[in-house]
Amino acid sequence: MLEVKDVVKAFKSGDHTIKPVNGVTFSVGQGTFAAILGKSGSGKSTLLSLLGALDKATSGDVLVDEVNISKLPDAKLTAYRRDDIGFVFQQYNLIPNLSAKENVMLPMEFAGVSRAERSVRAAELLNQVELTEDMHDRKANRLSGGQQQRVSIARALANRPKLILADEPTGNLDDETGELIIELLRSLSHEKNTTILVVTHDQALTGKTDRKFRLARGKITEITAS
């Protein structure tokens, strides 16, 4: 369960104060596949960074399973990111000189999982995201965009997180591959009961999600089917 209560993020820019996120409130139940839509500069990525504990809100609360991550100290935020959150980025952000499997093993290494166990799980996850076995040991920078995004999703699932945050996951992919990735995220959300929140400006993607929100001028509104 993700609850966001009156979250504000303000930046100083010269004499002005900018608020890309200004009093955002919403909640999403466990296992929901949701999307936040918005134009470029609407504050989507800023909101995502607050939900993923990459940055701290100026005010307001973000609760994940009733734990207020806005109040957590830095050390606990690291543990929160490691154990409870999975990230999928538009640019994939894989470590280029590591293989696909090693990239997936990385979060498990930080969590202290044994080498043998993380190797088995990484292989399972890569199979789950439909990356063929011959690709498992290939360096990340030798994989195609779609393959890299699959590895990125497998990495996000590594420590069995409660919440996966995806920032424009199809932004660098062609339509067909984008469709496949969206379908993969949707099925994972339902099969693993994982909350997946996708930030995008891709209207086509939002058709596949359970709930949709629109962020404009720092305010969020839910788009309901009419």
């Binding site: 993923g52 990459l54 050390a75 690291t78 543990a79 990111r81 490691r82 154990d83 990230f87 980025f89 952000n93 470590i95 990385l106 979060p107 930080f110 969590a111 990495r155 420590n159």
Partner: peptide
Amino acid sequence: GALKAIGASN
């Protein structure tokens, strides 16, 4: 930043 985002400590 990516390493920190996926749970690496300082």
